[in-house]
C-alpha cells in the first residue's frame, strides 16, 4: 500500500515538474517572438541611437545566443528576478508581491462562500430530484455558466451599488477615509469585499452545486447505501454517514482543480471592481503592454495552478483509500 502510494506520489510530482518546466520554456520563447517587445519598439524609434540599442540589448541579454539567454533566464528565475516593470519602474517581484494579499483575500472569501452554498445547493437539488427546486437549481447554474463573470459583476454594481446604493463598487477601501477604530475599518473593507466576492462566488456556486448534485445522486444509487438502509440506519444517518463522505470526494478535488477557472473569474472581477490584486494588475499590464510584468504574473499563476492540481491529487489520496497507481 505504502509502496503503491509513494510511486503514485512520485509520478504526480514528476508530472507537475515537467509541466512547470514546459511553462518556463513557453514563457521564455513566447516573450521573445512577440512583435511588441521593448527592443523592437526601441528600434522602430528613428531617434534611438545605436548605443541605446546596444545598451538595451545588453540589458536584456539579447546579444547572447539563445541557449545562453535561456540559461540566464533560468538563473534569474531562481533569484526571483523577473525584470523591471515598464509601468511601475520597479522590480516585477515587488509589484506582484504587493498585490497578492488582496487577491488571496478575495479568492479565499469567495471560495468559502461558494463551497458552503454550492454544496448546500447540490444537496437540496439532489434530494428534490426532478422537482421545482431541482429544476430551479439547474437553471440557475446554467445561467451562471452562460453569464460572463465581468457582466455579472457589472449587473451587480448596477443593482446593488447604483440603484440601491448598498455597497461600494470600486477598490478595497474608501479613498482618503479616516477610521475612528479598527472595526470600522474592517467594516469598510467588508463592504468593499461584498460585491466582488459575491460575483466570484456566484460563478463557482453553480459549478460546485451541480457537481455535488450529480455526485450525491450517483452515490445514493450505490449498493452500499442499500446495505446501510438494511442495517437499520435512518434515512438521515444513511445520507450523513454514507452518502456525504463519498459524494464530497469529487467536489473537494474539483475545488483545487478548478483554480484555473477561479483565477479567470478573479481577473474579470478585480478588473470590474478595481480590486487592487493580481487580476487587476494583469489587466493593467495587458493594456499598457508591460511585458515583464505580464510574464511574471503568467508564471506565478501557472505555477500556482499546477501546484494546486498536485495538491488536489494528494488530497484525493488522503481522502479516498482506493486510490492506487
Amino acid at each position: 500500500m505504502l509502496f503503491v502510494s509513494s510511486r503514485y506520489l512520485g509520478n504526480k510530482i514528476a508530472q507537475a515538474l515537467i509541466t512547470i518546466f514546459i511553462v518556463l520554456c513557453v514563457n521564455f520563447f513566447l516573450f521573445r517572438i512577440m512583435p511588441g517587445d521593448p527592443l523592437s519598439m526601441l528600434m522602430r524609434n528613428p531617434r534611438a541611437s545605436q548605443q541605446a540599442i546596444q545598451k538595451a540589448k545588453e540589458l536584456y541579454g539579447l546579444d547572447q545566443s539563445l541557449p545562453a539567454q535561456f540559461g540566464r533566464y533560468l538563473q534569474d528565475l531562481v533569484k526571483l528576478d523577473f525584470g523591471v516593470s515598464f509601468m511601475f519602474k520597479k522590480p516585477v517581484v515587488e509589484v506582484i508581491g504587493g498585490k497578492i494579499g488582496p487577491t488571496l483575500l478575495l479568492l479565499g472569501v469567495s471560495e468559502l462562500i461558494a463551497i458552503i452554498l454550492g454544496i448546500y445547493l447540490g444537496i437540496v437539488a439532489a434530494s428534490h430530484r426532478g422537482r421545482i427546486v431541482d429544476v430551479g437549481a439547474i437553471s440557475l447554474s446554467l445561467l451562471l455558466y452562460s453569464l460572463p463573470t465581468f457582466l455579472l459583476g457589472m449587473v451587480l454594481i448596477l443593482v446593488f451599488s447604483v440603484y440601491w446604493g448598498l455597497f461600494p463598487s470600486v477598490g478595497m477601501v474608501t479613498a482618503a477615509a479616516k477610521f475612528s477604530s479598527w472595526w470600522r475599518q474592517s467594516l469598510d473593507l467588508l463592504a468593499h469585499l461584498f460585491l466582488p466576492a459575491m460575483t466570484l462566488a456566484l460563478t463557482l456556486i453553480g459549478e460546485y452545486g451541480m457537481l455535488m448534485r450529480s455526485s450525491l445522486i450517483e452515490v445514493l444509487s450505490e449498493d452500499f447505501i442499500v446495505t446501510a438502509r438494511a442495517k437499520g440506519l435512518s434515512e438521515r444517518e444513511v445520507i450523513h454517514k454514507h452518502g456525504y463522505p463519498n459524494a464530497l470526494l469529487p467536489v473537494v478535488t474539483a475545488i483545487s482543480i478548478n483554480l484555473g477557472l477561479t483565477i479567470a473569474g478573479a481577473i474579470q472581477v478585480e478588473t470590474v471592481f478595481s480590486w487592487p490584486g493580481i487580476g487587476r494588475l494583469m489587466y493593467d499590464a495587458l493594456n499598457n503592454r508591460d511585458y515583464p510584468l505580464l510574464q511574471g504574473i503568467f508564471l506565478l499563476v501557472c505555477i500556482c495552478v499546477i501546484v494546486a492540481n498536485l495538491l488536489s491529487d494528494l488530497l484525493y489520496m488522503v481522502l479516498d483509500p482506493r486510490v492506487k497507481s
Partner: peptide
Amino acid sequence: DIFLVLPWLPLVLVLAAI
C-alpha cells in the same frame, strides 16, 4: 494534459497580447 492544466484565461490573454 498540459493544456488542460494550464490556467485558460491567463494563457489566452498572454497569447493574444503577444
